[in-house]
């Protein structure tokens, strides 16, 4: 799973039917200190994550297919948690 920050959203009227009705959030993966890692990805969101909020994004399609209730859906990234606090301990 990815730790990411919500950085925007997008509107797409013409899309795979299983995505109808889902918010599409632009999430930028980041490390514990908030430094961006790689390029942004787009995840479906059913939790209502707000702009610039840190979230946890699942990159396995199984959970997302179950959420959209379509076993033939090509959906993959999904916001599965909104992060309250990131505490980084010392790594041994």
């Amino acid at each position: 799973m990815l730790l990411a920050r919500v950085e925007g959203s997008l509107i797409a009227t013409r899309k795979h039917r299983s995505l109808n009705g889902w918010r599409l959030l632009i999430c930028q993966p980041m490390d514990g200190a908030g430094v961006p890692q790689g390029g942004p990805v787009v995840a479906i969101d059913g939790l209502g994550a707000g702009l610039h909020q840190p979230v946890i994004v699942s990159t396995d399609g199984a959970a997302a297919r179950h959420a959209v209730n379509d076993p033939k859906s090509p959906v993959r990234m999904m916001v599965i948690g909104i992060v309250d606090e990131i505490s980084r301990g010392a790594t041994r």
């Binding site: 950085e7 959203s9 509107i11 009227t13 090509p74």
Partner: peptide, 28 residues
């Protein structure tokens, strides 16, 4: 996941799922 929409196993690993109309992007 890109091969999920097909009825039988298909060697596709990248598929178009959305035609984007509008993007709102405001990074920190």
């Amino acid at each position: 996941e890109a091969a999920m929409p097909f009825d039988r196993d298909t060697p596709v690993d990248a598929i178009n799922v959305a035609l984007v109309d509008d993007v709102f992007y405001s990074p920190l």
